[in-house]
């Protein structure tokens, strides 16, 4: 039995716009196990990045947590992230939980050398010995296959996108974190660089043994890196499960739609399909299922009753939030003409 590392319980977050509220996360519950690698998958605006910054309570100023908790378990002590004072949280960030937000290309202060980014980070966490810091930095940079001396004395703009992503990874491992959260780690990189980063992540995970949470819209990335997958839709987790279970027998029609819409490199069909419609407006609270508008399996029960995330009968640890969930969902989808073909 896996031990839990982070417990997200009933988390709701809203953003205050000028005229209306956006309900970015709605009662999300998710357990993350120690040492596993979990992918948060979903399309833009589904709340996956909001969940990402919630782990270290770095939500933007115009947001509010309206319900729920995030508990982080470290040295068998339970830390309530939202109740931790800012000074404590500052110590926790990057030393225990590393959160690398989207946009690694701009993650570095343009007027500071890479060396100073390492030193600055280490000093902030009470590390004093400069030689020690730089030795560790050199080791980590070599570990991500970079020329450590050259990189340390470079300014960020002198490095390529892929190099910057690697530097950020090694900066992330400077304080031996327990959890590493990556938001879209390979977006904005070319396909070969993406490949390298993925391989590197696998190696680093093996060596440093951290819990990996990564946020992506790319299902193939999830298939490659994750042990478990959480599919998010309109601010909710709609299906959570083992990576093989999710891909082989998705129970939620949205998950099934996503899987069939992923273009395959090998295989007879060259057609690309997509789920018709667009994600719902998040400025309303749903009475029924948020996927109702686009769902091929919908019925009257979906209009007024919101499905809860519950375990499927056949498999432990596979959770789904759908009134019509069944192991045959993928078959249904493939047979019907619900998905629209893109020529």
């Amino acid at each position: 039995m896996a031990t839990k590392h982070i417990i997200v319980d009933d988390l709701s977050v809203e953003y205050l716009g000028a005229t209306k509220k956006i309900y970015a996360l709605q009662h999300v519950s998710l357990d993350i196990n120690r040492g596993e690698s979990i992918a948060l998958v979903g399309e833009s605006g589904c709340g996956k990045s909001t969940l990402g910054v919630s782990f270290i309570n770095l939500l933007p100023l115009n947001s509010r947590i309206t319900s729920g908790t995030i508990k982080f378990i470290s040295n068998s002590k339970e830390i309530d992230i939202f109740k931790t004072p800012t000074s404590e949280l500052q110590k926790l960030r990057w030393s225990k939980i590393v959160m690398m937000a989207q946009g690694a290309l701009n993650a570095f202060n343009p007027v500071m050398r890479i060396r100073d980014h390492f030193i600055d980070t280490a000093y902030s966490h009470g590390w004093k010995n400069k030689t020690e810091i730089l030795n560790k930095a050199r080791y980590l940079l070599k570990r991500v296959h970079l020329d450590s001396e050259r990189v340390l004395s470079s300014f960020p703009h002198e490095l390529s996108g892929g190099m910057r992503q690697r530097v950020l990874l090694s900066l992330g491992l400077l304080l031996n974190p327990e959890v590493v959260i990556l938001d879209e780690p390979t977006t904005a990189l070319d396909i070969l660089t993406q490949r390298n980063i993925i391989e590197l992540l696998k190696e680093l995970k093996k060596e440093f043994n951290f819990t990996l949470i990564f946020i992506t819209h790319d299902l193939s990335l999830a298939a490659e890196l994750a042990d478990r997958v959480a599919v998010m839709y309109a601010g909710k987790a709609v299906e959570v499960g083992d990576v093989y279970d999710i891909f082989a027998t998705p129970y939620h029609p949205y998950t099934a739609g996503l899987i069939t819409s992923t273009p395959k490199l090998r295989g007879e069909s060259t057609e690309v399909t997509s789920i018709p419609g667009s994600p719902p407006n998040l400025s309303e609270i749903f009475k029924g299922c948020p996927f109702y508008e686009r769902c091929p399996l919908r019925s009257n029960v979906c209009i007024n009753s919101q499905p809860k995330l519950t375990a499927v009968e056949e498999k432990d640890g596979h959770l789904v939030a759908c009134h019509h969930a069944s192991k045959n969902t993928l078959e249904h989808i493939k047979q019907g003409d619900w998905l629209s073909t893109i020529q």
Binding site: Q90, R93, W94, M99, M100, N106, A107, N109
Partner: peptide, 25 residues
Amino acid sequence: EDYVEVAKARGIKESRIMTSYVARN
């Protein structure tokens, strides 16, 4: 800017972020 956000995630003190990351740029 992203680097300000990342600096916060790196646990760097608010005063240091304001001077060396924000005002400096």
